[in-house]
């Protein structure tokens, strides 16, 4: 870890104690057999095509214009969006708005090792991926020469981090009332051999990135979808997959993205409803107070008139 002078640093040679545990170096077959049990269910009890239950919430950060929190069991992601501000380090006028995305992992987010505070290449790649996925949805021409900041923080990572980050960013942007074409949702899939794991956990993703000795399929695919327009905003694949597998998985991913969409819709509509009711209540209270003041005013006027008479 390079020395960071603005923070307290530990000793340079510190290593995670997990390296010395008995089960650190497992063979590929051992890891594979751990993932699926005899009944065809995964380690956490799900079926192969079952996604984790998702908890979605907006208005999570009181200081941000719009924010969201998404939790899928082990993966916890916070996103906040701020008001448009001027583009830094730019001299010429830009006819479209810019999006500035930053994805960061908490130092304690990954169970394998501690992340450093300095952004590494993986975090930078995720930031670029997030911007590419969210870019098509935002009406950039409506805030020319401004930039909107989207910050995503991954508190705990247990697989499907990019998918959760994209969905959280979409919800936070809508919560912040940024003009958008559509709501973006994302999901990801891990493929090991002929088995397709929907919404993979970190162990499943880790194994899917390693190739077995034979030439079988393995890989992870993440897809972001614009649900109203039915278009694919971002598609990324890593690993080694043949064409039929990819085409089959594209269909599965579209359905998964479609399944997430109603939850986001419900959350947003709920907040709008609450906002309208709150406004109604405040305006009624305001009117009641005004009516009381008016009565007092009339009383005072009439008392003056009486006194002067």
């Amino acid at each position: 870890m390079p020395l960071d002078y603005k923070r307290f640093n530990g000793p340079e040679d510190s290593v995670s104690y997990k390296r010395f545990t008995a089960d650190y170096l497992k063979s590929y077959d051992e890891l594979h057999s751990e993932l699926i049990d005899e009944t065809g269910h995964r380690k956490d009890g799900r079926a192969m095509d079952e996604a984790r239950p998702m908890y979605v919430r907006g208005n999570f950060v009181s200081q941000a214009k719009g924010s969201s929190y998404i939790e899928m069991r082990g993966t916890k992601v916070v996103c906040s969006v701020f008001d448009p501000r001027e583009i830094v380090h730019q001299n010429e006028f830009s006819t479209v708005g810019l999006l500035f995305c930053e994805v960061k992992f908490a130092p304690f987010a990954c169970k394998r090792q501690r992340q450093s505070h300095v952004p590494d290449s993986e975090e930078k790649a995720l930031s670029v991926a997030l911007r590419k996925a969210v870019g098509p949805t935002v009406c950039c021409q409506l805030f020319a020469n401004f930039q909107i900041d989207i910050f995503v923080y991954i508190i705990e990572s247990d697989g499907s981090c990019l998918a959760a980050a994209i969905t959280a960013a979409g919800l936070a942007l809508a919560n912040a009332a940024v003009p958008m074409f559509d709501v973006v949702t994302a999901s990801s899939v891990a493929i090991i051999g002929d088995k397709i794991f929907i919404d993979p956990t970190e162990d499943e993703e880790h194994l899917a990135m390693i190739s077995p000795d034979t030439n079988t399929n393995h890989g992870v695919i993440t897809m972001a979808r614009l649900n109203g327009l039915m278009q694919i905003a971002d598609f990324r694949q890593i690993g080694s997959l043949d064409i039929e597998c990819i085409l089959k998985v594209t269909d599965i991913l579209e359905q998964e993205c479609q399944k997430v969409f109603p939850k986001i819709q419900k959350t947003l509509v709920g907040y709008v409803k609450n906002g309208i009711m709150e406004q109604k209540r405040l305006s009624e209270e305001g009117k009641a107070r005004e009516a009381k003041l008016k009565d007092k005013m009339l009383e005072w006027r009439s008392s003056i008139v009486n006194n002067s008479v």
Partner: peptide, 25 residues
Amino acid sequence: EAKCSVISMHGPGSVSPQNLRDAIN
């Protein structure tokens, strides 16, 4: 058998699923 080892998208637009399939082929 030719296998895909990476797929990525660039640019501010989006594609329809049919476009994606044809493009990969």
